[in-house]
Design a protein around this nucleic acid. Structure first.
Length: 652
RNA sequence: GCUGGCAUGGCACAGUCGGUAGCGCACUUCAUUGGUAGUGAAGAGGUCACGGGUUCGAUUCCCGUUGCUAGCUCCA
């Protein structure tokens, strides 16, 4: 057989060879994941193809797929440990994932102590060093086998496989699991693993099914890799906006106010105001006009838009339809409000495109388990906008929205951190959407063309569209790897009909416009959360709620310090003075902990020569400068929204 | 909504095998007037989230509620 090595060279083996022989022949590292191989891009168990005539691409322990095999094997060891300590537990599934693996069981929930005991048992199993043997059974026999063991979930899994399928199993000593592989040769090759947490998870991800107990764990090739990963987990907790944002007094929550209703404190509110002013001004430059529409409306409005039928559960409804004459609901979106602004007067084709923007507060009654810090809340504010467009202007306007979105991302310094998703409808589930299949397919293709033209890499996902049209969602991950939508641009060729919107064309005919629903920088709260994690609280100067702090050496220099502060403020710089009777070292320590970009130390020398001693977050001690020079420099930094590089170690 | 975990002064945490609580930071006052990451001293501050139950007695044990949190599900 031919074996392709990592460097692309091909080695040929003749006659009967064992997997171990080949693995050892190639490298020591390979023996660790010797059962993982790849034929025609598909990961297979080496033993299924060994000595047959095919080209095999050997996976090393450092390959993603090799690592997956290691982790998957660890999940089998976990399953065996669970069966040993909790024989009543039923096995569900246990795949490897990005960060490790998990295994779902039907059993009582595990506490941390249970996990520790399982880890101990797993170490025992690993030490026993059982070889993983692979064998297959015909489908009917496989079902009988699993039925005999009482593994009802496994039976269900096999029943979903084709009638003529050969079902593969892996056994390690006394423990056998249904599995496609691949695996390590032996459990003893697991060198570094850790059970991370336990939680509930619905069988097959369906909330109508039974809730199983999921155990998350991870495994690495080497102990130090595991330790580095665990240290990394600790590290990202420090960037977690939900922790850091509270510590930095950007926001807080209060029991009696309610879930998903964070309070933005002065510093957080200032940052959001800075972003809002910036975005509103930018939109105006790009031809947007502003509206300010009500935060609530009668149910009649939502009945026209379709939200009353489709999304009533997600809205805060005031009143009872049975008893009250009028029922109101807080708005979960701005669309229909701006449509009525459009409809207030008759529009000509010459009026289009019309770009409406609104800094819009929305309310969505998220389920109680969904709320998270500032990223998933029940009241939030977005830079919402609707473009009312002639069909022939659609491509250009859609591009304009993408351009604005990318400008926002670039300015915040996060353009490298996002992925673009073309969110399509789901033809299998067409009742969730309005409009014909032809319209959907055509619009999706037009969006694809726009993205390709702008050379934006994107991926496509079915079933993620809005009910009225496909969209481009700009996605970002939080420190824990969870993904959220930061910006959305939606193509809507259908709602104009619902609201009877039209314009009059050259021929005097009424024509339906197209609509683009879009955000320029999405939800302010969510963006703030993202920035906290991105910059670990050390925001670009222009976004900082306090940009400069003046630190007089002693109270003798109070007047000069206040003069400096006044001059900074005159120039639009957010500055304060620390006039407390503390030593300079103490004041510096505090300003650094509060991540203030610039400290200006002033004493006798500075006062006499109208100087400031600059200490920045970026370079540390920048030396004495004339006050005017400093002001010029920081004003430029703020005006251009520069993101200065941090070149000093943050070691305390 | 579901399954767990957690809830002790403003913050971050000890602690009580059931006998009404402590440290650090922050805060207040006094002294100190200083040159680049913590000056010293004194003081104030908590019905141990809320509501029930068990008990002679509950912050501690049990139940419920609320909030936070890890996931699952959901996210127009």
């Amino acid at each position: 057989m031919k074996v392709t090595l990592k460097d692309g060279s091909v080695k040929e083996y003749a006659g009967e060879m064992s997997v171990i022989d080949i693995a050892k022949d190639i490298s020591e590292g390979l023996a660790r994941v010797a059962t993982a191989g790849e034929v025609n891009g598909e990961v297979v168990d080496l033993r299924t193809v060994i000595n047959s005539d095919c080209e095999l691409n050997i996976l090393t322990a450092n390959d993603e797929k090799g690592l997956a095999a290691l982790r998957h094997t660890t999940s089998h060891v976990l399953a065996e440990a669970v069966k040993r300590l909790h024989p009543e537990a039923k096995l569900a599934i246990g795949p490897s994932i990005d960060t490790g693996f998990y295994y779902d069981f039907e059993c009582e929930p595990f506490s941390r102590e249970d996990l520790d005991a399982l880890e101990k048992e797993m170490k025992k199993i690993i030490k026993e060093g059982k070889a993983l043997e692979r064998y297959t059974l015909p489908r009917a026999e496989a079902i009988e086998f699993m039925k005999g063991k009482g593994e009802t979930y496994k039976v269900e899994l096999i029943e979903d496989l084709p009638e003529d399928a050969e079902i593969s199993f892996y056994s390690q000593g006394e423990f056998t699991d249904l599995c496609a592989g691949p695996h390590l040769m032996s459990t003893k090759n697991i060198k570094a693993f850790k059970l991370i947490s336990s939680s509930g998870a619905y069988w097959r991800g369906n909330e109508k099914n039974k809730m199983l107990t999921r155990v998350y764990g991870t495994a690495f090739n080497k102990k130090d890799e595991l330790e580095a990963y665990l240290a990394h987990l600790e590290d990202i907790k420090k960037r977690d906006h939900n922790k850091l944002g509270r510590e930095m007094e950007l926001f807080t929550t209060v029991d009696v106010i309610g879930q998903g209703l964070p309070l933005l404190m002065p510093k957080g509110a200032k940052m959001i105001q800075t972003m809002q002013r910036w975005i509103e001004d930018e939109e105006e430059k790009r031809g947007y006009v502003r509206t300010k529409t009500p935060l609530m409306a009668k149910s009649d409005l939502y009945k026209i838009s379709g939200h009353w039928d489709h999304y009533k559960d997600g809205m805060f409804v005031m009143g009872d339809e049975e008893k009250d004459k009028e029922v109101f609901a807080l708005r979960p979106m701005t669309c229909p409000f701006q449509y009525y602004v459009y409809k207030a007067s008759q529009k000509s084709y010459r009026d289009l495109p019309l770009r409406y923007g609104e800094t819009s507060t929305l309310f969505r009654c998220e389920d109680s388990g969904e709320m998270h810090g500032l990223t998933r809340v029940r009241q939030f504010t977005i830079s919402e906008g609707h473009l009312i467009v002639r069909p022939d202007q659609m491509d250009e306007e859609f591009k304009g929205c993408l351009d604005l979105a990318r400008y926002c991302l670039r300015t915040l310094g996060v353009e490298e951190d996002v992925t673009y998703r073309l969110s399509k409808w789901d033809p299998e589930n067409s009742e969730k959407y309005i409009g014909s299949a032809e319209v959907w397919e055509e619009t999706q293709q037009r969006i694809r063309n726009v993205l390709n033209e702008l050379e934006i890499p994107f991926f496509e996902e079915a079933g993620e569209a809005a009910f009225y049209g496909p969209k481009v969602d700009i996605q970002a991950k939080n420190v824990y790897g969870k993904e959220d939508t930061m910006i959305t641009i939606q193509w809507d060729a259908l709602l104009a009909e619902q609201f009877d919107m039209y314009y009059v064309d050259q021929n005097g005919e009424k024509v339906r416009p197209y609509i683009i629903h879009r955000t320029s920088m999405g939800c302010y709260e969510r963006t703030l959360a993202w920035l906290i994690e991105k910059y670990a609280g050390m925001f670009p100067t222009w976004l900082c709620p306090e940009q400069v702090r003046v630190l007089p050496i002693s109270e003798k220099y109070k007047d000069y310090a206040e003069k400096v502060e006044a001059e900074l403020k005159d120039n639009g710089i957010l500055a304060t003075v620390d006039n407390r009777a503390e030593k300079i070292g103490y004041k510096i320590r505090e300003a650094r902990l509060q991540k203030i970009p610039y400290m200006l130390v002033v004493g006798q020398q500075e006062e006499e020569q109208n100087l400031v001693s600059v200490r920045s977050r970026f370079l540390g001690d920048e030396g004495q400068k004339p006050l005017g020079d400093f002001i010029d420099a920081i004003c430029k930094e703020i005006r251009t929204k520069e993101i200065r590089k941090i070149e000093v170690e943050e070691n305390k």
